[in-house]
Design a binder for these strands. Sequence first.
DNA 1: GACAACATACATACATGAATGTATGTTAAT
DNA 2: ATTAACATACATTCATGTATGTATGTTGTC
Lengths: 207, 207
Amino acid sequence: MRRTKEDAHNTREDILNAAVTIFSEKGVGASTLEEIAQKANVTRGAIYWHFKNKAEIFDALHERMHRPIVEMLIEDIEKDHPEPIQQLRDMCVRLLMNIEEDAMKRQAMMLFIIKTNYSGDMAIYKENYLAKKEEGKKLFRRYFEKAQKAGKLSKDSNPELLTEAISCYMKGVLHEYLINPEGFNMKKKAPQLIELFLNNIGLNEGN
Amino acid sequence: MRRTKEDAHNTREDILNAAVTIFSEKGVGASTLEEIAQKANVTRGAIYWHFKNKAEIFDALHERMHRPIVEMLIEDIEKDHPEPIQQLRDMCVRLLMNIEEDAMKRQAMMLFIIKTNYSGDMAIYKENYLAKKEEGKKLFRRYFEKAQKAGKLSKDSNPELLTEAISCYMKGVLHEYLINPEGFNMKKKAPQLIELFLNNIGLNEGN
DNA sequence: GACAACATACATACATGAATGTATGTTAAT
DNA sequence: ATTAACATACATTCATGTATGTATGTTGTC
C-alpha cells in the first residue's frame, strides 16, 4: 500500500541501517537481502522497491559512512594550533577512541577495512575505497604541511613519507582492533601507540 | 578408479594449490568448489574424496601457508648479530620485499589478512588466525629482548609496546600493499617506511 | 604367475535448498 | 482514478552435498 513520503524515507533509512549492521557482522558477500529485510522489519519486496540489488545498497552506504570520519579530520585540521604535530597526535588518539565508542564509525571501519571483499561484483567499488583512502591521507598530510610551515618539522622531513607512514600505522592499529575488539584495549593502547610513533617527529618541536 | 598413492597425493596437492589461488583472488566465501576443481583439473567428486568441505580445505591450508613466513623470522632471529635493532630493520624490509616477490607468501598474506571473513562458518578459524598472529608477535619481541640484553635498547623502553607497534605497522603496510599492489611501490617504499618508523619510535641505528 | 575379490580414487549423476530477481496483489496517499 | 510503496507469490539458477558408476591398484589364494 502507498505510504507517506516520510514513511517511505524512513523505510529506506531502516533498510540502510539494517544493512550496515548485517554487512559489518557477516561481510557483504555473505549477507542476504532476506536477513537485511528482517532486520529492517520489511520484506525483500520493499528492498527491491528502493534499491536495484545488494551492490546498490552498498553504494548508498559508501559516502554516508565515510563522511563523519572525514568531517572529524577536516574540523580538526582547520583549527589553529601552535603545535600541529601535537594536534595530529591528539587527533589520532581521539579518532581511535571514537571509533571504539561510536558504533556507526566502528561499523564503517569494519565494513570497509575488514568485511568487504573488493572482487567480483564488488570490484567496481575498489576505486571508491581507494579514493576515500586517498582523501583521508590528504587530510593527514595537511598536519605535516602545517607543521613544516610553522617551522615545527625538521628541514629534512618528508611530509609525503610521514603521511604514508601514519596512514599505514593507523590502518594497522585499526585492523588489530577490529579483527578482535575484545582482545584490544583501545583506551590504554591508542595513546601509547600513537605517542610512541609521533613523539620523535619534528625533533625541533618546541624550539 | 584406483590410483597410486603418489597420484592421490599429487591430486590432493593440486587441489590445495588451486584453492590458494582461487581463495586469494576471490575470497574464501565467494569461491566455489567447482572453480577450485577446474583450476586443479579434477572434478568436485575428487575434492569431496579428499576433503569434507571448503572449510576443511581452508584448514589444510592454514598451517602450511604460515610456515614459510614464520620460518623466515625464526631463522633470522637465531643468527648472532651485534645490532639486533638493525637486524630487525633489515628483517622487516626483507619480509616486505619477499612477500611482493614470492607468490606463495603474497597469497598467504592476501588470504589471511584481506580475503577471509572470519564469521559464519569461518568463525572457528579466527582463533587459529589470532594464534598465528601472536606467534609472529613473539618472534618480533625476541628482537627487542635481544637488543635489551645487549644493552642496545634504552632502559625505559618497553619491548611489549614496541612489539605491538611494529606488528601494527607491518600489518598496515601489508594491508596498504595488498589492497592495491599496482599502486604501491614496495621496493621503494619498504626501506623508507621501515626506517622512518623505527627511527621515530626511538630505535635509531647505533644506539 | 594368474586371477578373483576388494577397495581406492576419482568422475558423473542426482537431489535439494537457498538466494536472487521478477511478477502480481494490496492498500492508502495524492 | 491513479499510482507509489510496499507485501506476497512465482520462477530460476546456482552451489552444495550425496549417491552411484568406473576402472585400476593391491592383496590373497591357488
